[in-house]
Design a protein around this nucleic acid. Structure first.
Length: 551
DNA sequence: ACTATATGGCGCC
DNA sequence: TGGCGCCCCTATAG
């Protein structure tokens, strides 16, 4: 259960010299068992020899090998400190910029921007602007002006789950627009799951729709029994959820694999329902428009981001669908009018420091913009009618890029009429009673406060994919191959037992486990994750910070 | 208890 | 501009 100390492959485990007298092992047990050698100081032959010696160590009394236990930081290769887990706490390398905010001079531990109840907002544009009065006003005075901000309801307990549902990591989730209990999910293999999470056992995975990553899905508003999908195989699919029968609307790689430099992958996807146009964008910076009725590409593709750079996301304005928001690897989110669309015709360009994983208009009024960037910052523009030159706020949040994870995307709560609640998974782990867990954060984007962090001791993996239900107080999240449904719960004894029956474990021998979720006396191995046997019981409570925000 | 692997972004030359 | 090597909290199968 305790997090494994990750051992980079970069340091062969060879003892070079040993100082036999001053066997100074055993201060930090975590690192004792192995001595890392400076790269390249011993050859493989030597290694073999060493092993040999050990095995035939019978009585060939050799001179005791002297080694200086030089501990070297795996990050900066210098000695005197070591980065890595100490128990369930990760210690940063002090020589590198802060892993959280990316600024030099401190580590995550002491980062002034650490996501916390009050320090979430980075001192970026607004604080540094000359207009400090305005900042003061916003921060201290105007906050007493009552706003239409109902209390946030946080779905903080796992209500049901399908463990190892997909065969590869989950990449996207969508709630059905009208049927409340239906959740669809896409994965890295291109498969599409349909799950009725109230009936729990009613689920299916369709496997023949795409050949690789299903990056984005969108329900067809004209027929919500069908779903569009954009995939790295270069196709846009339209799938009937009842039958799983799928057709390809677009295939950007009609001649097959000609090497990585020509292979087109589709990422961004959205639908302009007014015009019946499906919009999809690829890794070459191009936007394709598809007539949803004839299923034909209309016009020629438009370059909406830097040539040969990936367009990671598309979003049509909820009230004015001719307004399109795109984001991409060129470090920009851009606003377009699709009635006047041509290469370089963007209305606004919102600059970021790194790749932009996602950009969304706010769900109800569409007047705000929310972006998630690989520079570990969530950015908010308060009004698309106001000054768009710089974001209204930058919220430092751990959402590092990792090629092996689905990119993090901060998602609006579509039910929140104040358009201020956002959910986003956290990359960096936190020590919760001796266990390293990666919570899912709820952030009030009007002030950067962490409203709640939810986690479950049985979810040991990072949860980058999260979606809030359009009508119910329900959160769906994708963590690795599994999907979880969260609801606000008291978690009484009775409830916990019920919940345990709604945990489905897929795999070799599928079974529904009985037991108690997050229970003191119960089965720790609830989710059947691979844990070592000497697991200690852990008690982790999701934190919901201050029922009332103090503005 | 290992290792291989996935095809991502960036900086450097 | 292209190719290459590097890379701090991955997760899984075999």
């Amino acid at each position: 259960m305790a997090p494994q100390t990750r051992r980079g492959p970069s340091f062969p485990k060879i003892v070079i010299e040993r100082d036999s007298d001053t066997e100074d092992s055993s201060e930090e047990e975590d690192f004792d068992d192995e001595v890392q050698k400076l790269a390249g100081e011993a050859s493989d032959d030597e290694q073999a020899e060493e092993k040999d010696d050990a095995s035939t160590s019978t009585k060939r009394k050799r001179e005791p090998i002297t080694i200086s236990l030089k501990r070297v930081c795996k990050v900066c290769k210098q000695s005197g400190h070591e980065a890595g887990f100490r128990g369930a706490t990760y210690i940063d390398c002090p020589m590198k910029p802060c892993f959280l905010c990316k600024l030099p001079g401190h580590t995550t531990m002491t980062c002034p921007h650490k996501v916390a109840t009050e320090f979430g907002v980075s001192p970026a544009p607004l604080k540094n602007s000359h207009n400090s009065l305005k900042y003061l006003f916003d921060r201290q005075l105007r906050c007493h002006v009552p706003k239409m901000k109902p209390a946030f309801v946080i779905p903080n307990k796992v209500n049901c789950a399908v463990i190892r549902y997909h065969s590869r990591r989950v990449t996207c989730l969508e709630f059905h627009p009208t049927k409340n209990n239906i959740l669809i999910s896409g994965d890295k293999k291109g498969q599409l799951g349909v799950w009725d999470y109230e009936k729990v056992h009613e689920r299916i995975v369709y496997g023949n729709i795409h050949s690789c990553i299903l990056n984005n899905m969108k329900y067809n508003p004209l027929n919500d029994g069908t779903v569009y999908g954009a995939s790295s195989d270069g196709t846009v699919s339209c799938t009937d959820l009842e039958t799983g029968i799928s057709s390809s609307l677009v295939n950007l790689n009609p001649t097959g694999w000609q090497g990585p430099s020509s292979w087109k992958m589709l990422y961004g996807l959205d639908l302009n329902s007014d015009k019946g146009i499906l919009l999809a964008a690829d890794n070459f910076g191009l936007l394709y428009m598809i007539d949803a009725r004839s299923n034909n590409v209309t016009g020629k593709p438009i370059l909406i981001h830097k040539k040969k750079s990936k367009v990671t996301g598309l979003h049509c304005h909820p009230l004015q669908p001719d307004l399109l928001l795109s984001c991409g690897n060129d470090h920009f989110a851009r606003i377009w009018d699709i009635r006047r669309l041509e290469d370089g015709s963007s209305i606004y360009n919102l600059q970021h420091k790194r790749v932009v994983n996602s950009a969304y208009f706010s769900p109800q009024s569409g007047s705000k913009i929310l972006t998630t960037s690989q520079d570990n910052r969530i950015r908010v523009w308060d009004s698309i009618f106001g000054d768009l030159d710089s974001p209204s706020r930058e919220i430092v949040h751990s959402q590092d890029f990792n090629r092996h994870l689905t990119p993090f995307r901060a998602e609006w709560d579509p039910k929140d009429i104040s358009e201020s609640l956002v959910v986003v998974g956290r990359y960096i782990s936190e020590n919760y009673n001796g266990v390293a867990l990666h919570p899912i954060d709820f952030i009030d984007i009007t002030n950067g406060q962490l409203v709640a962090e939810v986690m479950d001791p049985n979810i040991m993996t990072i949860t980058p994919v999260n979606k809030l239900h359009p009508r119910d107080d329900v959160l769906a999240s994708g963590s690795s191959r599994s999907i979880f449904i969260w609801k606000p719960q008291e978690n009484t004894e009775l409830e916990r037992e019920e919940v345990a029956n709604r945990i489905i474990i897929c795999g070799k021998a599928e079974k529904s486990r009985k037991g108690k979720l997050d229970d003191d006396s119960g089965d720790d191995d609830m989710f059947d994750s691979k844990k070592n046997s000497k697991t200690k019981k852990i008690h982790v409570k999701s934190k919901v910070h201050g029922g009332k925000r103090k503005c």
